[in-house]
Design a protein around this nucleic acid. Sequence first.
DNA 1: GTCTATAATCGGATAGAC
DNA 2: GTCTATCCGATTATAGAC
Lengths: 214, 214
Amino acid sequence: MDIHVKEPVRDGARRRDKLEGAILAAATRLFAECGFDGTTIAAVAERTGISKQNLLYYFPTKNSLYGRVLDDVLDDWLERMAHLADAAGEPADVLRAYVGAKLRFSREQPWASRVYAMEVIGGAKFYGEQIRARVVPLLRRDIEVFERWMADGRIACVDATHLLFALWAMTQSYADFSAQMALVLDKPELTGADFEDAERLIGDMVVRAVASTA
Amino acid sequence: MDIHVKEPVRDGARRRDKLEGAILAAATRLFAECGFDGTTIAAVAERTGISKQNLLYYFPTKNSLYGRVLDDVLDDWLERMAHLADAAGEPADVLRAYVGAKLRFSREQPWASRVYAMEVIGGAKFYGEQIRARVVPLLRRDIEVFERWMADGRIACVDATHLLFALWAMTQSYADFSAQMALVLDKPELTGADFEDAERLIGDMVVRAVASTA
DNA sequence: GTCTATAATCGGATAGAC
DNA sequence: GTCTATCCGATTATAGAC
């Protein structure tokens, strides 16, 4: 008997991945805009173009969907930022690259940034352990890099921890507070030029903060 | 006939105000922790120590409660910040005072800061008009003060708009991202000393950003 | 002003056919 | 893997007695 196999395994897997990706993209945006409880799986399904029940086949619970969204946010962000602390080169250049990379993430993945921000603002009740395990070590390592530079006399002595907090805050806000920024600038949304201005100012501020006071 | 008036008008009003205040305090905290949809009026009522139905007597809808919370957040913030742009004095001193005031608001009213942040991150779909009417003019005025200082040669020329965004971001994050900061610092929550360190570093950064490059 | 009761709806999740 | 049908709990809000 000739059994008709609809799709080879690989195509099936590819299709599954593609649909999962579409669901996650829709979910990321909606979680960012409406928060966890404000987002319904029906709305995610509709935006994806599938039925609610079909979505529940791929993500059996709302929590599992939310968890995957946050996992993917972190994966993307960690991948972009991981190499920076290892970077050899002048501290000023590394700092500017760091600012640029973080700002680029705010620009290219604003919803990812905002989902993460909302989770943290709410106290990270859902994702706190993952942050402790995956984000905190990275931030601590960055702080240590700053402190080594200071010990080696390559930059001026400042509070490395709060310098990193400041750097994070300034870059993160171009995703999280872009709605308010756009209102101040009286334009529908931030443009590439705005991000260039931001990168210049933030880069200058950070570099100046650690410049030796001749 | 001797009608027993339970409470004179003034005591009644005072009682009403007191209860309203208690409801608003509970609501502010819960909206910050759980978001708009994650907060139930039953939970607000329970935290206030009254019944859900009684809460609905004071705030007939959830939207009206949320609106009042945001109104009060803005009232408090505007009152604290309003005088700063008028302040005469050296730019460096005014800037440090500005940073200090904003940081103090993050420390003393973390839930207020977070409710506001959540609303903005979600796109300010509920409160956008109020932000346009009440917050944006204030920020624009601050930017103009910075630009006047530059025109008068009292500070170096930088992008005044993005400088204000940076200042706002750095101070705001000590409310919004305090959960993550505490994890990095490996302590249950930020302390007064942390806020002093922050004020010093942010103050130095901002002042240095506008210091003339001799 | 506060209570009891309840209406009306919605949302997450399951069962089972195809 | 996708669909139809449905359950069940939770939530906002209202009606009306006291």
